[in-house]
């Protein structure tokens, strides 16, 4: 009996002593944290995509509280959320144009020539051994490296082609560096017209390997409201994002290869089976 009592007593005393030590050290070595950082972190999306340029949402929150950046640098948060953060901290939200990613290739398996490939299922690995096993040297390889990198599941692999869903894309830019063919660019979200081709080759060479390549026929350039809305660069036409064409251009231009597309319609699959 006494053994048990001694043991209980000893354990209680030891516990009390250690609690005292912990209590004292916690007070003596306390690190001051700004409580607002935690609150702001809670208001952020918490996906840690890195689109703001900081290591994650908590790091970004700290930067906002310390005044090193502004809340609108977060590409993911809705406007309402950003205003809430700004109001909470009593600062201005600032303005940042919303961007979305565009994968400038329309070459799905149905419209391009492909050779069999049996190796690592990653675009960056495939690009090293056979240029991607696809007829076009510049097109989407189709092993979903960008789709795997997307924290928002905004990229769908459809028939060997990566397709961005504009309504899901936040413009964080995580996919941009994963593409070994540099097909992905961030464009203003307000622009819906894009040229889904990146090959600088001559039209005839492109058509041999892909039915939906831009052949630089300039129909879209002529049909545009102003000549500067589309930029011709060698054998490739691109939308001029600083003076963007209007969505009705796709209807007006009647692109013979359907390389000129609306991002929203492209995601919905409207152009599949259209290319001749």
């Amino acid at each position: 009996m006494t053994i048990i009592l001694t043991a209980v007593l000893f354990a209680t005393l030891l516990g009390a002593l250690l609690a005292l030590v912990i209590g004292v050290t916690a007070k003596a070595f306390e690190v001051e944290t700004d409580a607002r950082v935690e609150t702001v972190t809670g208001m952020l999306p918490g996906v840690n995509c890195g689109g703001c340029g900081y290591a994650g949402c908590a790091d970004f929150a700290k930067a906002i509280v310390e005044g090193r950046t502004i809340p609108s640098q977060c590409p993911v948060s809705t406007a309402v959320n950003i205003t809430r953060i700004a109001e909470y901290l009593g600062i201005t939200a600032g303005e940042k144009e919303k961007t979305i990613a565009v994968i400038r290739c329309g070459g799905s398996c149905a419209v391009t020539v492909r050779s069999p490939y049996n190796g690592v299922g990653d675009c960056r690995s495939a690009a090293l051994v056979a240029g991607g096993a696809k007829g076009c040297d510049f097109g989407c390889i189709g092993f979903a490296s960008c789709a795997r990198a997307c924290p928002f599941d905004a990229i769908e692999m459809r028939d060997g082609l990566a397709v961005v869903h504009p309504e899901l894309c936040t413009g964080c830019g995580k996919c941009v560096d994963t593409c070994p063919k540099n097909l992905i660019i961030l464009t203003p979200a307000a622009v819906d017209v894009h040229v889904y081709c990146s090959s600088p080759e001559k039209g005839a060479i492109k058509l041999k390997v892909c039915k939906t390549a831009c052949i630089a026929c300039r129909k879209c350039v002529k049909a545009a409201d102003s000549e500067t809305q589309m930029t011709v660069n060698g054998f490739l036409v691109t939308a001029n994002y600083s003076n963007p064409p209007l969505p009705d251009l796709v209807e007006k231009a009647k692109c013979p290869t359907t390389a000129l597309r609306l991002a929203s319609q492209h995601a919905a699959g409207a152009y599949e089976g259209v290319s001749k």
């Binding site: 190796g119 690592v120 990653d122 960056r124 690995s125 090293l128 051994v129």
Partner: peptide, 13 residues
């Protein structure tokens, strides 16, 4: 395992 291809990738990166 496609070991050789993995190493090509690593060397390139």
């Amino acid at each position: 395992r496609p070991l050789n291809q993995h190493f090509k990738r690593a060397k390139a990166e």
